[in-house]
């Protein structure tokens, strides 16, 4: 099990936020965590605490304010976009410009970092795409157009696209929004399965704390005071979840590992 201990992504004294011309707005600082190969990591926290900012900084959409992020022992800043595309893939909440593509075509876009100037798929590319479709159980949707799909199906397609990109890390920003309870559990369960099956490190942000506690290997909890990264059981016994939200409405029940509405 030595391989499972390989650190894929780590941050040291990371501060995240927004840089404007004259000032910088720090959203969170002192972020230190290590994400290992084959792990499923859930990122939770209240609205506006900076979950998206953290993910956007990791996927290099936003600059690091201070400290650093290391991916496969390389500083994120020194990785150029073509190399990063082979190490990190993303699933975002934003709408696609066009859904007028077949599922296969969309998943095949994940091969772009590897294909030639006009995007020709080789046989091995096609195999990887088909394999990604199979892993996510959507091989039968292959020829459907993306606009014909339900939200749950479409989320699976986007996950398959990220898988086809064949990266060590997949980052998902709130993959369970707009989904019903069943599909929320289904998608997170699927991510857990994929992390085990493919050895990829999967980091997602979510408001489904209950589900995340049950499925994740590691969780990153963002509170106003600190950013804590640990195994879910340790987080519960340390009482981290209790400090997540103001206590006037909901409180965390250590016994069941879920939130209850205060009476």
């Amino acid at each position: 099990m030595v391989e499972n201990e390989t650190i894929i992504l780590s941050t040291t004294n990371l501060a995240i936020g927004y840089l404007t011309n004259r000032s910088k707005l720090v959203v969170a600082s002192d972020i230190n965590f290590e994400l290992k190969k084959g792990q499923l990591i859930g990122l939770v926290g209240a609205n506006g605490i900076g979950k998206s900012t953290l993910l956007r900084t990791i996927i290099k959409v936003q600059p690091v304010i201070s400290g650093n992020i290391t991916i496969n022992n390389q500083d994120l800043i020194s990785i150029d976009s073509t190399d990063l595309a082979k190490q990190l893939s993303i699933v975002l909440t934003e709408q696609l410009t066009s859904k007028n593509l077949s599922v296969y075509e969309l998943v095949a876009l994940g091969r772009h970092p590897y294909t030639n100037w006009i995007g020709n798929l080789t046989t091995s590319d096609e195999n990887i795409v088909n394999n990604a479709l199979k892993l996510v159980n959507i091989s039968d949707l292959k020829d459907k157009k993306c606009f014909e799909l339900s939200d749950g199906q479409f989320q699976k397609v986007m996950i398959a696209r990220a898988l086809a990109q064949d990266t060590d890390i997949i980052v998902l920003d709130e993959p369970t929004t707009h989904l019903d309870m069943y599909h929320k559990a289904y998608i997170l369960k699927l991510l857990q399965h994929l992390a085990k099956e493919t050895g990829k490190t999967i980091l997602f942000s979510s408001h489904e704390i209950d589900l995340a506690i049950q499925l994740c290997d590691t969780m990153i909890v963002m509170t106003k005071e600190a950013v804590i990264c640990d195994q879910p059981c340790n987080l519960i016994s340390n009482g981290v979840f209790e400090s997540l939200f103001p206590k006037d409405l909901i409180s965390f029940d250590n016994a069941t590992g879920s939130f209850r509405v205060s009476k």
Binding site: L84, A85, L92, L96, T97, I118, G119
Partner: peptide
């Protein structure tokens, strides 16, 4: 014609396109 691949990436939106290595 040289932009065909980039244009297809752009169908996903700017951020996805960037994550696919597009400049």
């Amino acid at each position: 014609i040289f932009s065909i691949k980039d244009l297809n990436s752009l169908l996903l939106g700017d951020n996805y396109a960037k994550s696919l290595g597009l400049n």
